[in-house]
């Protein structure tokens, strides 16, 4: 139908898209049956849109870099270490921190769907949810890493961790050289989201 901007003929409210209307319908039904609380939905939206994000994971990594006792506690029981920083996990989800070493680079994928450590990194980026990444991360991790601009030394092997609904992995990247004596705030600024998924490396200490 041509749209000639004759607003007298189109004076009604803008019609939302089909999926938007379907979501609205589900919400209407579930709220009216008392199965879902709109206030709880608001809290979830607020949390994932504004409060949770990679800055929380970065703080955790920076603390692990600066504090060997915390690093040990993190690899022993990541959920308890998160709680120590006031980051609450989701019920039934076990977070496992996997530490990069000169011998092993860790990389995380979810081949089933898109399981991801939300409380530490927020909502996953589009590429993490794409079929291309989900299929290829396991099959050809070095090639995928190269597309992310990461080339590993020949002697460093790649270990790929497949997340599930119960176990989510967080990569602890190696601390960049030249950061001796840095405080945690300064260290955290070097930790990128991708470095905690394993598709990137932290910023170098001398980055502008």
């Amino acid at each position: 139908m041509p749209h000639d901007h004759a607003h007298d003929d189109h004076a009604h409210s803008l019609l939302p898209s089909d999926p938007a209307l379907r979501v609205k319908a589900l919400e209407t039904i579930l709220v009216s049956k008392g199965l879902v609380d709109p206030a709880a939905m608001e809290v979830i939206l607020d949390t994932y849109e504004r409060k949770v994000g990679p800055h929380l994971g970065a703080a955790l990594v920076a603390r692990a870099w600066a504090d060997p006792a915390f690093a040990a506690a993190l690899s022993d029981n990541a959920n308890a270490a998160m709680q120590a920083l006031g980051i609450s996990g989701r019920q039934g989800e076990h977070v496992v921190a996997v530490e990069n070493t000169p011998a092993t680079h860790n990389m995380v994928v979810c081949t089933l769907c898109s399981c991801y450590p939300w409380p530490l990194l927020g909502i996953p980026p589009g590429w993490y949810k794409s079929d291309a990444y989900r299929a290829r991360a396991v099959r050809e991790p070095r090639k995928v890493l190269a597309e992310f601009g990461v080339t590993l030394p020949a002697g460093q092997s790649v270990r790929v961790w497949d997340s599930t609904a119960e176990v989510r992995y967080l990569v602890i990247p190696m601390r960049p050289e030249g950061t001796e004596g840095w405080d945690q705030t300064r260290l955290a600024a070097l930790v990128t989201r991708d470095s905690m998924i394993g598709t990137g490396l932290p910023h170098p200490a001398d980055a502008p």
């Binding site: 939302p16 898209s17 999926p19 938007a20 979501v23 609205k24 589900l26 919400e27 579930l30 199965l35 879902v36 609380d37 709880a40 939905m41 608001e42 979830i44 939206l45 994932y48 849109e49 994000g53 990679p54 927020g122 909502i123 980026p125 589009g126 989201r193």
Partner: peptide, 20 residues
Amino acid sequence: APSQFDDPWQAQVFALTVAL
């Protein structure tokens, strides 16, 4: 840039599912 939700309904259906 880190992508979160491209459209408000995506955030709504996400929140609805997590709330359920």
